[in-house]
């Protein structure tokens, strides 16, 4: 059974409909890439999963219907979100950002520091003074501190320098290989996504238009739906 399952999910911003039927599953230990052009509903899907907007349809995590749960309860069930634009707690230090999020489990400060040595070096520094890449590492670290079963990376490497992007992707790959954590990842780079993902789901106009193994994602398909 899938860890996360969305079937025919619809969602609304007030009275305007944003999702028109998203089908998506993420199994245990699976890395799934969520693709699509800008404005096709990727972030909205993530927001629906995290119960930040009103949605209808099938939405289960570990067999539990997420509808009716507040956002923080969804996070407690084991969904760690790395939000678009990072959104670290700017006035807290690196260490404090991690401690504030900590929940019991194998992930602790030391382990996050091992995954991102740069964070360990800057543990006393305020989040607002970090570079974009470091903030993204911190956002990932913060999500891991909640000891999730599924990590959602919304725009994993947006606006980061090539070297930093490589570091983030290396960390994602490490998470996949070493911990077998389920990951749902959104990014602009199809090539990078193809390297780490097992499967891909493509959205267009708020609905799933293609899903399959990453090996089945031919250049023609990605050209049609993603534009690259």
């Amino acid at each position: 059974m899938s860890l996360l399952a969305l079937s025919g999910l619809t969602a609304f911003y007030g009275s305007s409909q944003a999702l028109f039927g998203v089908d998506l599953t993420v199994g245990e230990g699976e890395v799934v890439a969520l693709m699509g052009r800008n404005g096709m509903g990727k972030t909205t899907t993530v927001r629906a999963i995290c119960r930040m907007i009103v949605s209808k349809g099938g939405l289960t995590f570990a067999g539990r219907d997420l509808h009716g749960l507040p956002s923080h309860a969804v996070a407690r069930l084991g969904i760690g979100l790395v939000p678009e634009g990072r959104r670290c707690f700017a006035d807290l230090t690196v260490r404090e950002n991690l401690v504030a999020a900590a929940r019991p489990g194998p992930w602790d400060e030391a382990r996050v520091g091992d995954l991102f040595p740069r964070l360990a070096e800057r543990r006393g520094q305020r989040a607002r003074t970090l570079s974009g890449g470091e903030q993204q590492m911190l956002a990932i670290g913060r999500a891991l501190m909640t000891n999730p079963r599924l990590v959602i990376l919304d725009e994993a490497t947006e606006g980061l320098a090539p070297l930093v992007r490589a570091e983030i992707w290396a960390a994602v790959a490490r998470l996949k290989i070493e911990t077998g954590m389920a990951i749902l990842v959104i990014d602009k780079s199809v090539r990078d996504l193809a390297r780490v993902s097992d499967r891909a789901v493509i959205l267009e106009r708020g609905a799933t238009v293609w899903s399959g193994g990453i090996n089945e994602l031919t250049p023609a398909i990605s050209e049609t739906y993603v534009g690259v």
């Binding site: 956002s71 923080h72 407690r76 939000p83 959104r87 006035d91 504030a100 999020a101 909640t146």
Partner: peptide, 15 residues
């Protein structure tokens, strides 16, 4: 402290 700064983000870490 974090909840004062960005309440919505505190929710994403389960608080």
């Amino acid at each position: 402290n974090a909840a004062r700064q960005v309440p919505a983000r505190v929710e994403t870490v389960g608080l």
